[in-house]
Design a protein around this nucleic acid. Sequence first.
DNA 1: TATTGTTATACTCTATAACTATA
DNA 2: TATAGTTATAGAGTATAACAATA
Lengths: 145, 145
Amino acid sequence: MKDKSMRTTDRSLPIALLRARERVMEPVREMLSRSGISEQKWRVLRVVEELGPVEQTVIADKACLLLPSLTRMLQSLERDGLLERVADTVDRRKSNVLITEAGRALVHEHLGQSNAIFERLENALGKRDYRELLDLLEKLQTVKY
Amino acid sequence: MKDKSMRTTDRSLPIALLRARERVMEPVREMLSRSGISEQKWRVLRVVEELGPVEQTVIADKACLLLPSLTRMLQSLERDGLLERVADTVDRRKSNVLITEAGRALVHEHLGQSNAIFERLENALGKRDYRELLDLLEKLQTVKY
DNA sequence: TATTGTTATACTCTATAACTATA
DNA sequence: TATAGTTATAGAGTATAACAATA
């Protein structure tokens, strides 16, 4: 007999978040693999494109990466001419990362495809539920507990 | 000037799901690291405990892992005496995985701690929103698009 | 002393293909 | 021929600690 306190994995928030994400990422992965860019690098590019010149600690936080991982990705993205690092003039420990024109072009090209994917999903799930889900996820990120 | 078609990363479903998950996993990771069990193995154990004797393809699907990764984890979990693999008597290509008493004990012990973590979160987020979020994630997993 | 970022290292997981055994 | 699982292998990311430079 099952323990009553046993939450099923469907009702486990971390597992449900992961399964949902895997589901949603399927077509995105297909898109990214065609251009040879990893999921993680794609997040870095989007964060940098969104936040403008931004320091690495912030990128790591927003893109859910550790700093040592980020360092290597930035080196690679910089070699590919998609991002640039410039030393901060005020606090010289920092460097600010910004997107190049080539990087911006790449982001926007893929974002077009990505938008198409998520428009389909939005319709399948219902606009109301889709928005509600994003609202709840946003709330979850900021809640203190 | 920003492109209007540019969704911010807050409203990107994959990124929002990831950030939410990272947020939620923080205390769970702390708990797991104390017992030296990886996140992935923890998912495998929970899935097997939940689904009883179950074939590996199903575990891989439910725990969001690839079969080759799962194979190695099962070997390790079997060595540790937490799971067992028994050949399927009907279809001999398959093997059924089941949890041992030691495995069940480990799962339930950690599940107790995990429940405490998520009860706190449920209260912080509000029971209604918490349930709504799980419902939407479940819906997302089954939607066709 | 604390913080920003880098380097080093070991390890784990991912991804793909090739393979075995069975259906 | 197709499927279940294993093995091999390359590569990428994770996690920790130690380090350099700067604050």
